[in-house]
């Protein structure tokens, strides 16, 4: 019973939040347009959080995702500025993400630095590189091709509704992450590493290699989110992704309160992302002070995790 309550508490909270906003904002909250807006607003966070789940499954962390997002945006924008086609810029941005992720994985699994420390270091390195490459400037205007920024404005029309490309991209990434973690040997092994690294190693799982791959996937996701961000704001700035990291970790933590053994799951991470996004959207519409909003979001994350950990303790 307690187990069920613990698992469904966060989901119940989410439903209550939805009901509260639906009652308070009957004309504007549960409209197709607003829900699409929310999905679009959340798309970048969803991509970072879903790929962050991959490393968090192994009890690892990646604090560098925000600065990686900024760096990939800058790299792509610099390549656009140099006159190369859009696909070259996008590929380069994503490649930077994979390489940065691999470097994180190398530090964590080969050199053996704690993920917190290793990725804190690379957070600064990636951020510094973004500043160095861009000379600290925001790249915008004619330097950003309209076919790139146009992606963030485009969508697939279904009847009267236009599903934004950013939302579709995020949906695809979430689906791929879900498949990888839930339906492949690779994913199951990552969960095994998260359960017990030593035992996994002894059982013949190639821990070092898998961690390398997992970190590079997180790096790739961060870079992808950075490109989506740059397309949405039609510019690249060396600090623009920095807000993504803490929200992504908060979303994964919120999601972890819903799973049976407290392990991260992509679908639950998505619920975590939705909670954060819906709170932001609803409270903006209710005109709640932005600082009060920040406090409330923090308190809700704390409340969810506290309920989960208290009920877990009682259970044991």
């Amino acid at each position: 019973m307690i187990q069920k309550l613990r698992q469904s508490g966060t989901l119940l909270g989410f439903v209550l939040i939805l009901l509260f906003f639906a009652l308070k904002l009957p004309d504007t909250f549960l409209t197709a347009r607003n829900l699409i807006n929310i999905s679009q607003q959340l798309s970048m966070l969803a991509v970072v959080a879903a790929t962050m789940t991959i490393v968090m499954v192994m009890n690892d962390f990646d604090l560098s995702v925000g600065s990686m997002a900024s760096l990939s945006g800058i790299v792509a924008a610099m390549i656009f500025t140099a006159g190369y086609p859009v696909w070259v810029g996008l590929s380069a941005g994503l490649l930077v993400g994979v390489l940065g992720g691999l470097f994180n994985g190398f530090l964590v699994s080969v050199v053996g630095i704690l993920p917190f420390v290793a990725t804190l270091g690379t957070l600064t390195v990636f951020s510094g590189m973004a500043f160095l490459l861009s000379d600290g400037k925001t790249i915008f205007g004619r330097d950003i091709p309209t076919s790139f920024s146009g992606f963030a404005r485009s969508g697939i029309e279904i009847g009267d509704i236009k599903i934004p490309m950013l939302t579709i991209t995020a949906g695809l990434v979430i689906f791929i992450c879900w498949c990888i973690l839930e339906h492949t040997n690779f994913g199951r092994r990552l969960y095994a590493i998260g359960g017990n690294k030593e035992a996994s190693h002894l059982a013949g799982i190639k821990v070092v290699r898998l961690r390398l791959i997992a970190f590079s996937l997180t790096g790739l996701g961060a870079a992808g989110a950075g490109l989506m961000y740059a397309a949405r704001v039609a510019s690249a700035n060396p600090t623009q992704g920095s807000g993504l990291m803490l929200d992504a970790i908060a979303a994964v933590f919120l999601g972890m309160t819903m799973s049976r053994r407290g392990e991260p799951k992509v679908i639950y991470t998505l619920v975590g992302v939705l909670i954060l996004g819906v709170l932001d959207n609803g409270m903006t519409q209710l005109r709640v002070d932005s600082y009060v909003r920040e406090i409330l979001v923090g308190l809700i994350v704390l409340a969810a995790v506290s309920v989960s950990s208290l009920s877990k303790r009682r259970q044991s």
Binding site: T28, N37, Q41, A152, V233, N237, T284, Q285, R287
Partner: peptide, 30 residues
């Protein structure tokens, strides 16, 4: 900065009478 776009969209949904921004407009063009 991207959250500024999100909040502009929320304000439009809310049907405000006017919006004032203190941010580089090129970055919130959408």
């Amino acid at each position: 900065v991207a959250a500024v776009i999100s909040r502009i969209e929320d304000s439009i949904t809310q049907n405000v009478d006017a919006i004032v921004i203190a941010v580089d407009p090129a970055q919130v063009n959408v």
